[in-house]
Design a protein around this nucleic acid. Structure first.
Lengths: 168, 168
DNA sequence: GATCGACATGTCAACTTCGACATGTCGAAG
DNA sequence: CTTCGACATGTCGAAGTTGACATGTCGATC
């Protein structure tokens, strides 16, 4: 279960409310792991019970800000360094790209154009995020943005090539 | 649920037994979707009930070979072209890379070296698969292998840079 | 003819995830 | 003063996934 350590990791970077964590799962972490608020709130409760996070403040509308504890930091390190990674992946887009060439050419074209547009949009979003981070003085997550900005053009070029091959 | 369409897609490429499909999920499809035999056999049953696949032969040890039907092919096309893709991803390795820079440098180094070794091994495996496919006269899945052979070196270079940055 | 590893299928309880429902607050704009 | 959208948390049944248990066959090697 990576959810537990993903939440712990986000809190290791900065204290946050469940709501803010949900937003981070929707934005920065969305390319690695998906989770909705209905998973995040119970998980925060379990992490608190384990002593890995604690409530450090209460704000408007009943919001509670959680922070990682020393025990939580130790657990995060232990998991990152000592626990053998689970290499299983679940990525519907990758399944679709994999199966694409079983379709008739005209259907391939429709899918390729949709994927090309989506990839270009992702790239634009990442470029914007990159600017925000650089101008904001950096972030421990910046290297991952750099990686995305290198892999997305490779994917976009590949999609374009496949599209060109349909015509050629 | 992509499992259904991943199984359907594999059968669209070639008839297969549940056992063979399990092997394909462990090898070629492993970078896109993970599933074990305990999911695949019941799914084959459900696909047969829906009329998307059918048993086309029985072999040794009670094995049954399934093939896609015309209805199955239509369903695969419908899903690929008309159903809006779910863009959610679940990738523990990506979570680990994302959280890496929250760790102390010495722990980063350990993780980076492990990931570098794993990425190099993946690359070697894909190169071998590429050779097998090219010598075997091609495959509808070959373009995806090409994509992997382009993205993996980008990732490997990135990992190496992060490692170099720890020393420099 | 015994053993062993790959082939082959199946079930099931525990756990994780999804999507809908539910409830309420706060600030801004009309 | 009402309305509306963002903020904020929570539960729960249904669906999907995992990992262990279970069972048996076939071919090759000793």
């Amino acid at each position: 279960m990576s959810l537990r350590h993903a939440v712990l990791g986000l809190l290791a970077s900065h204290p946050a409310t469940g709501y803010e964590l949900t937003q981070k799962f929707d934005s920065s972490l969305s390319h690695a792991w998906h989770a909705s608020h209905s998973q995040i709130y119970p998980e925060l409760g379990r992490l608190a019970e384990s002593g890995f996070v604690e409530v450090v403040g209460e704000g408007a509308r009943g919001s509670r800000t959680f922070a990682i504890t020393d025990g939580g930091r130790a657990e995060l390190s232990r998991w990152m360094v000592e626990v053998e990674p689970t290499r299983t992946v679940r990525n519907e887009t990758a399944v679709r790209w994999f199966l694409l060439f079983l379709l008739p050419p005209e259907e391939q074209r429709v899918v390729l154009e949709r994927e090309l547009a989506h990839t270009a949009a992702e790239e634009a979003m990442l470029r914007e995020l990159d600017t925000v981070i650089v101008e904001g003085g950096g972030s421990p997550f910046h290297p991952t943005v750099t990686l995305g900005l290198r892999t997305l053009p490779v994917m976009r070029a590949w999609l374009q090539e496949q599209l060109d091959a349909l015509d050629g």
